Simulated assay, not measured.
Amino acid sequence: MDLRYIAAALSHHDARRVTAVIEELDGRAPEVALDGVPLDVDSSARHAVMELLRQLATGTSVTIAAVGDLLTTSQAAEVLGVSDTYVRKLADSGRLPIEMRGSHRRFRLEDLVKHREETASR
C-alpha cells in the first residue's frame, strides 16, 4: 500500500468548524471546491470528501489508498481489526481471497472491505 499520504487529525479548532458544517448539511452531499473553484463531481465523491473530513474531525488520522492496492497480512489484519494469525486462517480456508507474491500472501483492499461489510451484517 502506498502510504505516502497520511492526513493527521484536525486541530481542535478546525475539528469544531468542520463538525458544525457537517451538522448543517444534515446528510446532504456538500458542494466541493478547491481554492474557491467549484468542482463538478458526483454525490459519491462529495460524500467521500465529507467522510474524510468527519474522520479527521473526530481525531482519526487517515491514509488514502487506491482500492486495488495489495496489502500485507499485518496491514490486512489492521483493516479488519483482527490478528495476523486470524487473517492467515481466513486466507488458508479460502474465506478471504489472496494473491501470492513468492511465498507471501497479499490482500486486495477491496476484498478486505467486502469481507468486513459481510461480517458486520451478520
Rank of each mutant, 00 (worst) to 15 (best):
residue 1 M to S: 14
residue 2 D to K: 12
residue 3 L to V: 07
residue 7 A to D: 09
residue 9 A to Q: 03
residue 12 H to K: 11
residue 13 H to E: 07
residue 14 D to S: 05
residue 14 D to F: 02
residue 16 R to A: 13
residue 16 R to I: 01
residue 18 V to T: 14
residue 19 T to R: 15
residue 19 T to I: 02
residue 19 T to L: 06
residue 21 V to G: 03
residue 22 I to E: 05
residue 25 L to E: 11
residue 25 L to F: 12
residue 26 D to M: 15
residue 27 G to D: 08
residue 31 E to S: 13
residue 34 L to Q: 07
residue 37 V to I: 11
residue 37 V to D: 12
residue 38 P to I: 11
residue 38 P to L: 13
residue 39 L to V: 06
residue 40 D to T: 02
residue 40 D to F: 01
residue 40 D to H: 00
residue 40 D to E: 15
residue 41 V to A: 04
residue 42 D to L: 03
residue 42 D to V: 02
residue 44 S to Q: 10
residue 49 V to H: 03
residue 53 L to H: 03
residue 53 L to V: 06
residue 55 Q to D: 15
residue 55 Q to P: 02
residue 55 Q to L: 08
residue 56 L to R: 01
residue 57 A to S: 08
residue 59 G to N: 04
residue 62 V to M: 05
residue 62 V to E: 14
residue 62 V to T: 14
residue 68 G to H: 09
residue 68 G to A: 05
residue 69 D to T: 03
residue 69 D to M: 07
residue 69 D to R: 11
residue 71 L to H: 09
residue 75 Q to S: 04
residue 75 Q to T: 12
residue 75 Q to G: 07
residue 76 A to T: 00
residue 76 A to L: 00
residue 77 A to V: 01
residue 78 E to A: 10
residue 78 E to Q: 11
residue 80 L to S: 05
residue 81 G to F: 04
residue 82 V to G: 01
residue 82 V to D: 01
residue 83 S to F: 05
residue 83 S to R: 02
residue 84 D to Q: 12
residue 85 T to Y: 15
residue 85 T to H: 10
residue 85 T to E: 15
residue 89 K to A: 10
residue 91 A to C: 02
residue 95 R to Y: 01
residue 96 L to T: 09
residue 100 M to F: 10
residue 101 R to K: 14
residue 102 G to D: 05
residue 103 S to L: 11
residue 104 H to F: 13
residue 105 R to K: 12
residue 106 R to V: 05
residue 107 F to K: 11
residue 107 F to E: 15
residue 110 E to L: 04
residue 113 V to D: 02
residue 115 H to G: 03
residue 117 E to N: 11
residue 120 A to S: 12
